[in-house]
Amino acid sequence: MAVFSSKKFRSSAEANTIASRYRVHLARHPFLLFGLPFIATMVAGSFFLTPATAIRYEKHDRKVRRLSKEEELGIGKAGRRVDMKEEYYVRWIPSLDNLAKDLDDWEQKRVKRLPGEHDGVI
C-alpha cells in the first residue's frame, strides 16, 4: 500500500504568492509570525490610547470640581456670609421658658386632603 503525503498540492501559480509563503513559514514559526505581532499590537495600542483616556478624564474633571463652602451653600455675591457659630447658638437653641410654653400649648391640626384621597379608614 502506498503512503499518502500530508502535504497539500499547491499549483505553481499559487506557490509563488506572498500568502502561500507566509502560510509555510507560519507553520514552522507560529509565535514569531503570529503571536509576537499580536502582542506588539496590544502593547502599542495601550501606549497610543493612554493620552486619549487621559483627555477623557481631564474633560470630566473640568466639569466636576471641588466647591468651596460658599458655592456649596449657593451663596453668590448677593448673599450674606454664613457664620456657623452664629447660626447654631443664636437661632437654633430656644430658651427654656419658650420651650416649656411650646410643649404645654399646642394643638393638633389635620391637613386638608386632596380630592379622591382616602383618610386611611377601610
Score class of each variant (00 low, 15 high):
2 A>V: 15
6 S>R: 13
7 K>F: 05
8 K>T: 08
8 K>P: 06
8 K>G: 08
8 K>I: 09
9 F>P: 03
9 F>M: 08
10 R>C: 12
11 S>C: 13
13 A>E: 14
13 A>D: 13
14 E>V: 10
16 N>K: 15
17 T>D: 07
17 T>G: 09
20 S>K: 03
20 S>W: 07
22 Y>E: 02
22 Y>N: 03
22 Y>I: 13
23 R>C: 06
23 R>G: 08
23 R>L: 11
24 V>I: 05
25 H>A: 15
29 H>I: 03
29 H>Q: 12
30 P>D: 12
31 F>Y: 14
31 F>V: 01
33 L>V: 01
34 F>Y: 07
35 G>E: 01
36 L>T: 04
37 P>C: 02
37 P>G: 03
37 P>N: 04
37 P>M: 02
37 P>W: 05
41 T>Y: 07
43 V>Y: 02
43 V>G: 04
44 A>M: 13
44 A>P: 04
46 S>A: 13
47 F>N: 02
49 L>K: 04
49 L>I: 09
51 P>G: 10
51 P>S: 10
53 T>R: 12
55 I>M: 04
55 I>Y: 03
55 I>N: 03
55 I>S: 04
56 R>W: 11
56 R>N: 08
57 Y>W: 13
57 Y>A: 02
59 K>Q: 13
61 D>N: 13
62 R>M: 08
62 R>A: 13
63 K>S: 06
64 V>N: 11
64 V>D: 01
65 R>I: 02
65 R>N: 07
65 R>T: 07
66 R>F: 08
66 R>L: 07
66 R>H: 06
69 K>I: 09
72 E>R: 08
72 E>S: 12
74 G>W: 00
75 I>A: 04
76 G>A: 01
76 G>L: 00
76 G>N: 06
77 K>F: 04
78 A>S: 06
79 G>I: 01
81 R>D: 10
81 R>L: 09
81 R>K: 10
82 V>K: 04
83 D>K: 08
84 M>G: 06
86 E>Y: 14
87 E>Y: 08
88 Y>I: 15
88 Y>Q: 10
90 V>M: 12
91 R>W: 14
93 I>E: 14
94 P>M: 12
94 P>R: 15
95 S>G: 15
96 L>Y: 09
98 N>W: 12
100 A>P: 00
100 A>G: 03
102 D>H: 11
102 D>F: 11
104 D>P: 00
108 Q>D: 07
109 K>Y: 06
111 V>G: 05
111 V>K: 12
112 K>C: 01
114 L>F: 07
114 L>C: 03
114 L>G: 04
120 G>P: 05
122 I>E: 05
122 I>R: 03
